[in-house]
Amino acid sequence: MDNDLKREIIIDNFKNPNNKGLIDDESYIKEKKASDSCIDNFTVQLKLDNDVIKDIRFDGEACAIATSAISISIDKLIGKTKEEALNIINNYLNMIENKDFDKKLLDELIIYEDISKQPSRTKCATLGILGIKDLLDK
């Protein structure tokens, strides 16, 4: 994927993120996730039904990388089983940490492949998805 397209996807998802805004619904589980090294700050909500992710929502203020990454992750993970989702998330985390990972599993999330070269940004790229992972591990 060329860099212009990557940038366009990131900015689109930053300006108009998927599922931003929380809802008041008891069937969701919720978690606050704040980065300790920067100012990004998310609350993530997740609804599971028979081990299948029915919905994920988030709110909070964060940078373009953090916001676009959670937006794209949400799009990718809704509809997956818990196991499938954790597999995708672990592959994503491996990618960010510059370890071996399965490209095929990640689709659009591949745009963050080079983030490991910007140490100040890796926390941004993982904040939201770690919030989702925490909820799945609950």
């Binding site: 920067c38 964060a62 940078c63 373009a64 916001t67 100040s120 940004r121």
Partner: peptide
Amino acid sequence: VFSQDTAL
């Protein structure tokens, strides 16, 4: 632009 993006 989010403030952190400006700083970076």
